[in-house]
Write a protein that binds this DNA or RNA. Structure first.
Lengths: 340, 340
DNA sequence: TTGTAAGCGTTATCAC
DNA sequence: GTGATAACGCTTACAA
């Protein structure tokens, strides 16, 4: 690999001049500029970014920590590709680091990005608690932003979605359509998102004066198979229900399959709503209603914030987003005769 | 940020000694080791990886270039997360760079990784031709591996899947079950994968002495919506068919929806097979058969190869994988009465 | 307008 | 065992 020194020699100038030509900073005569460009061309020169970053203590890279266990493929790919696209539009690169399977490993990933002198760090946490993250933000000088959690202390360092409110709305939509016996499939309960969605469901029922029946709440683990299993549990319990809210679309799909297997028509006998609005959902028969998680908007805003912190631009006040409830024909109007 | 120099001062030793302690190379007395570790602890010292990488001209990072337009969320996430996991297991980090929307931008992405002095580069190409990539491999000294293409010159620098053979097998499976009128939905025809899948279909028909009817081949663009549109085209043409091979699962799902909308039962009247085996597929009603793309195995093997080139380990001879045909109850046995 | 030289924070080769 | 010191390739005052 040819170095700046070699280019300088070829062009008959000093390193400093070559550096000036490349950075566009400082005065260089057109004549020498031409010579330098010619020399660069001839030498096939490429700047060594490690050296540049070391000298400037900047990297033009933003790190993203996310666990590879994020189940939903569509959600994950939207997160990553949106981040890459948006950063790229700002002349920066994305460095993706696996948060693996524990809070400690998530910490390590962040540490690594810091050691690499990334200009900023984005965390899509799976295991770290909000308090741990508040501490981390104190610890690091560089901008750190957290997606999908509401921090206690550093409110401007996080962007989150009101999962509880979204779930509340979805449940309420079912109630308004005449449903009273609404079953609920949870996500993995070690996930705050899962907890919030469940809690929105409970609150909506309570708000409408409908008692919460614990036997209508069954645990799932985000996967289609766990959604199917949940329906089996539900049917075995004998509790009647006319609607079903699943904590994500994948489980909703599994649940629908199981309902059909049991000879129960969707939506004729049970209305179903999921979360995340995966793109295959509208093509299922019958179409699945869904609550669309604003992951794209959130990651986009997080990057806006980081760039603002870095380049000193405008810092937005908005740090939370809400989800759109997309009702398709899997939800039909009441009055409802609850299926036995 | 504290530096190695500061740690050295605190411990009353020289930089060199601290470096030795950290790298574990060279002799250091237990006593000084302890002092150094204590100083590191006190200072909260963390090595600057930029400086280290510059000095060693190694980075322990592997770059991956992939376009954000890769439609299928599940496929994309499997690719990325498998790469991150596998590299991590080898003590290396993944750097993801967006290949964006053209061959030129894919080249830029590769150049960037090279400028960052990544130890190796993985390309999941979307726009670059095999010849361009053969040139790139000559150009760069560091290991470069290509996934999902068969290179002409550097055969050991690529890992690919026999899409044509997989498609041939899927088509043959339908023929063996008594189908003769098999429709085909293509992918975007600017993708080699799409071309190979179509060509496997054609060959299988020909091999069985069944004439290829061009009106049974309709274009799709990988998305569920395009699959649905393709079925409309197919039905409008009036050509009868008893089976349908879609170039991916997403289109197959869209196609099934459209068939059902038209009152055509799957599999009662039409057997359907897709590609990629997305996880929600087995939960669709009726279950979708699929050809599973070995993306995990391919990326895994690519990383093995890169590590072998780097650390001088064993280089495997296997550079192609085949796909498993997963037949579910969306394909039923003949003899078939072709639907009119 | 250009050159000199001192960093940036490591590693690695020598001596001692 | 340990300490100087020269790289690594670039940026950036400060001179000229």
């Amino acid at each position: 690999m040819s170095t700046m020194q070699e280019v300088a020699a070829k062009a008959g100038v000093s390193k400093a001049t070559v550096s000036r030509v490349l950075s566009g900073k400082g005065y260089v005569s057109q004549e020498t500029k031409d010579q330098v460009f010619k020399a660069i061309e001839e030498a096939g020169y490429r700047p060594n970014l490690l050296a540049r970053n070391l000298a400037t203590s900047k990297s033009m890279c933003i790190g993203l920590v996310v666990t590879n266990t994020l189940y939903n493929g569509h959600y994950f790919s939207e997160l990553i590709s949106q981040a890459a696209k948006k950063l790229d539009a700002n002349g920066r690169q994305l460095i993706l680091v696996d948060g693996k399977h524990s809070a400690e490993e998530e910490q390590d990933a962040i540490q690594f990005l810091h050691d690499l002198r990334c200009d900023g760090i984005i965390i899509y946490p799976r295991f770290l608690s909000v308090d741990e993250m508040d501490l981390l933000i104190d610890k690091y000088k560089k901008p750190v932003m957290v997606v999908n959690r509401k921090l206690r202390k550093h409110q401007s360092h996080c962007i989150y979605c009101d999962h509880k409110g979204s779930s509340f709305n979805a449940t309420q939509a079912l109630i308004e359509r005449g449903h009273r016996d609404i079953a609920f499939i949870t996500g993995s309960m070690d996930s705050p998102t899962a907890i919030e969605r469940l809690s929105g469901y409970r609150d909506a029922l309570t708000a409408s004066g409908i008692p919460v029946k614990e036997s209508l709440i069954v645990p799932g683990k985000w996967s289609p198979a766990s959604g199917a299993a949940a329906v089996e549990t539900l049917l075995a319990s004998g509790q009647p229900f006319s609607a079903l809210l699943a904590s994500n679309d994948e489980m909703a799909i599994g649940a629908m399959k199981q309902l059909n297997t049991a000879g129960i028509g969707v939506p004729a006998q049970v209305s179903v709503i999921g979360f995340d609005n995966i793109p295959t959902a509208p093509f299922l028969i019958p179409a699945l209603s869904s609550v669309k998680d604003p992951v794209s908007d959130m990651i986009s805003e997080v990057i806006n914030q980081i760039i603002a912190m870095l380049d000193g631009g405008y810092l937005s006040e908005q740090n939370h987003f809400s989800s759109d409830l997309i009702l398709r024909d899997s939800v039909i109007d009441g009055p409802y005769k609850t299926r036995q």
